[in-house]
Amino acid sequence: MFIISLTYKVPLEKVEEELNNHVQYLKEQYALGNFQASGRKVPRTGGVILSTVKDKKQLEEILAKDPFHKNDLADYTITEFIPSMTSEDLTCLLEV
């Protein structure tokens, strides 16, 4: 599993210009099963995505398609981790 932390590099006005395209991209990745959760940081300096893609290289290729990445609006930090304990609602995230 991966935690992707996005940090905006530009003013929010520029981010807002691509927000609808970014949301459409996220919906496509959810439909493909690549993303499990996402949302804005507080304060709004970027966002966070949880991904169950198995391979970091594959994840990097997926993230390269994000309009925020394509338009150089955000930096991406990828952290891999292996969940060893979850709440009952999130047991699907545990590796079998």
Rank of each mutant, 00 (worst) to 15 (best):
M1V: 11
S5P: 07
K9A: 08
V10K: 12
P11L: 06
E13R: 10
V15E: 03
V15Q: 04
E17Q: 13
E18N: 14
H22D: 04
Q24Y: 14
Y25C: 09
Y25R: 04
L26I: 14
L26A: 01
L26E: 06
L26D: 03
K27A: 02
E28N: 08
Q29I: 02
Y30C: 02
Y30I: 02
A31H: 08
F35Q: 09
Q36R: 14
Q36L: 14
A37E: 07
R40N: 03
R40I: 06
K41Q: 14
V42W: 05
T45M: 07
G46N: 02
V48H: 12
L50F: 13
S51P: 00
S51I: 01
T52P: 01
V53K: 00
K54N: 12
K56D: 06
Q58S: 07
L59A: 06
E60W: 01
E60T: 02
E61D: 05
E61Q: 09
E61R: 04
I62Q: 03
I62F: 00
A64W: 02
D66I: 00
D66W: 04
P67F: 05
P67Q: 05
F68L: 01
H69N: 13
K70N: 01
K70W: 03
N71P: 04
D72M: 09
D72N: 10
L73Q: 02
L73I: 03
A74Q: 03
D75N: 10
D75A: 13
D75K: 11
T77Q: 15
T77N: 11
I78H: 06
T79Y: 09
T79C: 08
T79I: 12
E80Q: 15
F81P: 01
I82Q: 08
P83M: 09
P83E: 05
S87L: 14
E88L: 15
E88M: 15
E88S: 15
E95W: 12
V96Y: 11
V96P: 13
V96T: 13
